[in-house]
């Protein structure tokens, strides 16, 4: 436990001093501002670009802002997270900084758990910042609009991120090097995309957590329909983290 806290402290310190946390917070804050802004400005922009003929667009609403939000985070947001954290184990192993710590008796379980905690922590904070900004901005621009299941929908996206991070951690313990780790994580998302073609699997696919967020807000997708995906994502996350621990304990360094 003391190892875990000590190493977590080191991870957080590293995040701040190497500006990784700053970069991520800025990127997510930018997403937070851009989402409502894009929703508001798109019709104005299109009007200005196409003066000679009129495009009839519906008046933008809060739902458009949230559509942008979920699109940005589920795509760019996750990509930024994966790239920033892609080297979390690989750089330490290739530079040899971890060797010193391990020969001091640092428990390998603590290494894996603290790294995972750190990633989830940063992801949570960034998502929260982005959400609060979008929420404040959206309610300022469209004070009368109401969306449903907003918190649940954001929770689903958050859980999807947590799940992706567990895959990232697993890949990092399995393969050497950052590129291999990124490739494996990307590959697993592709696999989920492919299996989402079959409607029968959709119910269990963790990817659903990041693809039906807007439908949830509009109530065209039922909350209960995602329970299986939530369960699968949660169980798989635990399995991936546990397997990472087992693999890392037996890894030749």
């Amino acid at each position: 436990m003391s190892h875990y806290l000590a190493f977590l402290k080191k991870e957080v310190m590293e995040g701040f001093r190497t500006y990784k946390v700053l970069i991520m917070v800025l990127v997510f804050a930018a997403f937070g501002i851009l989402s409502p802004l894009t929703a508001k400005m798109t019709p104005v922009l299109l009007d200005a670009l196409a003066e000679e003929f009129t495009i009839s667009l519906p008046e933008p609403a809060a739902i458009d802002s949230w559509t942008q939000f979920f699109k940005n985070i589920a795509q760019m947001g996750i990509i930024v997270v994966v790239i920033v954290f892609g080297g979390i184990l690989a750089t330490e192993l290739s530079r040899g900084t971890l060797i010193n710590m391990l020969t001091k008796g640092l428990s390998r379980v603590a290494v894996i758990l603290s790294k995972y905690t750190y990633m989830v922590l940063i992801w949570t904070v960034c998502l929260l910042i982005c959400f609060i900004i979008t929420f404040a901005y959206t309610s300022y621009l469209w004070p009368n609009d109401e969306v449903r299941n907003l918190v649940f929908s954001v929770f689903c996206l958050w859980l999807f991120g947590v799940f992706i991070l567990s895959i990232l951690l697993f890949s990092a313990t399995l393969v050497r090097g950052m590129s291999g780790c990124l490739l494996m994580t990307g590959g697993s998302i592709v696999v989920m995309l492919i299996i989402s073609i079959w409607p029968a699997v959709e119910k269990y696919n963790p990817l659903s957590l990041a693809s039906f967020n807007v439908q949830l807000l509009m109530d065209t997708y039922k909350v209960t329909d995602l329970f299986w995906s939530i369960g699968v994502a949660a169980v798989l996350s635990v399995i991936f983290v546990t397997t990472s621990i087992i693999l890392f304990r037996k890894k030749q360094l």
């Binding site: 402290k9 060797i99 020969t103 001091k104 008796g105």
Partner: peptide
């Protein structure tokens, strides 16, 4: 055991005393 690797690498973002503190927390 105390170990000194051939090319020791430390966390570049730390100061020497901070690094030793981290080691301290790990060795207990």
């Amino acid at each position: 055991i105390g170990f000194l690797p051939d090319v020791p690498e430390f966390y570049n973002f730390m100061r020497p005393m901070e690094y030793l503190s981290l080691c301290r927390e790990i060795t207990g």
